[in-house]
Structures are given as structure tokens and as C-alpha cells.
């Protein structure tokens, strides 16, 4: 079927999302949205294999509860991108706000530039479902808090301000998954449940594979995997899968 083009100018999110849901039910799978300006919940709960292209700034909770498909935002996205998402890939050609990837269980978030606070909280892995978030810029506080699984990669490609690459309370309460941060992390900013590890061969292979896809998604920006991989990465893993196992008296 032809892609469905929607002009979202001045549309309430309810109207916009209702159209998308109705059209998905009719069999449409490819949507091109123009003049999006902060409309929330685009793609919410869609289980079909859709392809949604968004021109303009996507509003909060983009792709919330989504099961599969792809969303591309040719601009910035606001808070809650990929909230409790199951399997979609979301590519953002700009920045993304706070609490992205909360409780995400599968799928990918590829963010070109910076991301806000509280990224990837309580991400989880289950069997072959491994959620991946790759951020091209810097991140705020509580990156990977309560992380239970999945992969968080922070690249600091642009380094266009004097903020540190990542904020405080990095990985507080982390009990699963892995983070790769391109550059050094001030140990002072680490949550006490996180440990720094050397990268091994497997890590490099994994990074290479994931970054290849990331660079392809942003091919207009001249990114190269080899260039990115030249800088050293810091690998962070939880010290224990049971961080709070020892505080009780029986």
C-alpha cells in the first residue's frame, strides 16, 4: 500500500493517533507525518509492523508500549521516547528528552545528539530480547538507573559544550545489563552498585556491530565506526545481580 501522508499541523494528539490507529486497521503500514509539533504518544501500543516517519518534534511517550516496526524522527523528540517498549526501533535525528527507554524490553533507540536525565531506567533483557540505546551526544543524571538488562551506549561524538559526558548517579541500583561510555567516567559520579571493567574482544565485536547499524541510520552525518572506535570506551557492569539482597533479617 502507498504511504499515508498526514499533515499534523494544529492537530490534537488524540485526533492524530486515532487516524493512525484507524488506518493501521485498514491495512496501512507506512506513515509520513508532517508538521508534528509535540503531539504525544505517536505509535502508542501499535503491534503491527509499521514504519512511521516524523517531520517535526515528536511529543512525549513516542512509541510507548510498541511491539515492532520503525519510527524515524527527522528532528528532536521530547520526553519518554520508547517508554515500556517491546520491540520497535526509533531513530531520532536530534536530541531526546528525559526518561527515555524506561522499562524498555526490546527494540532500539538511536539518538543522534544529547539525551536528558534518567535514560534507560529499569531496562530489561529477556531471552533474545535485548534493548539497546545508543546516544550520540551526552547524557544527564541517573543514566541507567535500576538497569536490569540491555545495552546503553553513550558516544559523546559532538562534545560541543563543557558539560561532562554523563551526569551523576550513573547506574545507581543497576543489577543487570551493560553500559559502554566513550571516554572516561569520573568514579565520583558512579552509583555504588556499578563497577568499571576492561573491554574484551567480545565487547568490541558487539560495539562494532551495533555502531555499524547506528552509523548507517545517520549516514548523512558522515559518521564512521572505525573513527568512533578509535577512542577508548569505559565499560560499566553491575557489581551484583542482587544489590539489595543482604539488607534483611529473617
Amino acid at each position: 500500500m502507498e504511504p499515508l501522508v498526514i499533515d499534523a499541523k494544529g492537530m490534537h494528539y488524540r485526533e492524530l493517533n486515532q487516524i493512525i490507529r484507524d488506518k493501521v486497521a485498514e491495512g496501512y503500514r507506512h506513515f509520513i507525518l508532517h508538521n508534528v509539533n509535540g503531539q504525544r504518544y505517536i505509535g502508542a501500543g501499535i503491534m503491527e509492523d509499521v514504519f512511521i516517519e516524523i517531520h517535526g518534534v515528536a511529543g512525549n511517550d513516542l512509541g510507548v508500549f510498541m511491539k515492532r516496526g520503525t519510527i524515524i524522527v527527522y528532528d528532536d523528540a521530547q520526553d519518554g521516547v520508547g517508554n515500556t517498549m517491546e520491540g520497535t526501533k526509533i531513530v531520532v535525528h536530534g536530541m531526546a528528552g528525559d526518561v527515555c527507554g524506561y522499562g524498555m524490553r526490546g527494540g532500539k533507540l538511536h539518538i543522534l545528539r544529547d539525551i536528558g536525565y534518567r535514560t534507560g531506567i529499569h531496562m530489561k533483557t529477556y531471552k533474545d530480547m535485548v534493548p539497546v540505546i545508543i546516544v550520540g551526544g551526552k547524557a544527564g543524571d541517573f543514566f541507567g538507573e535500576y538497569m536490569a538488562g540491555g545495552i546503553l551506549i553513550l558516544l559523546n561524538l559532538w562534545d560541543d559544550d563543557d558539560r561532562p559526558i554523563v551526569g551523576s548517579y550513573l547506574g545507581t541500583g543497576m543489577h543487570g545489563g551493560v553500559m559502554y561510555i566513550r571516554g572516561e567516567v569520573d568514579p565520583h559520579n558512579l552509583g555504588k552498585e556499578v563497577g568499571i571493567k576492561e573491554l574484551d574482544e567480545k565487547d568490541f565485536l558487539l560495539l562494532k556491530k551495533l555502531l555499524k547499524e547506528y552509523c548507517e541510520d545517520f549516514k548523512d552525518y558522515g559518521l564512521s565506526v572505525d573513527e568512533i572506535m578509535k577512542s577508548p570506551f569505559t565499560k560499566l557492569v553491575p557489581v551484583s545481580t542482587r544489590p539489595y539482597g543482604k539488607i534483611y533479617a529473617y
Binding site: H122, K124, T125, Y126, K127, Y146, A148, G149, G173, H175, G176, T241, R242, P243, Y244, G245
Partner: peptide, 8 residues
């Protein structure tokens, strides 16, 4: 979630 991990 994987078998044997804490569910926090």
C-alpha cells in the same frame, strides 16, 4: 525477566 534475577 531472566530466571534468577531480582525483580526490583
Amino acid at each position: 525477566i531472566p530466571v534468577g534475577t531480582d525483580a526490583l
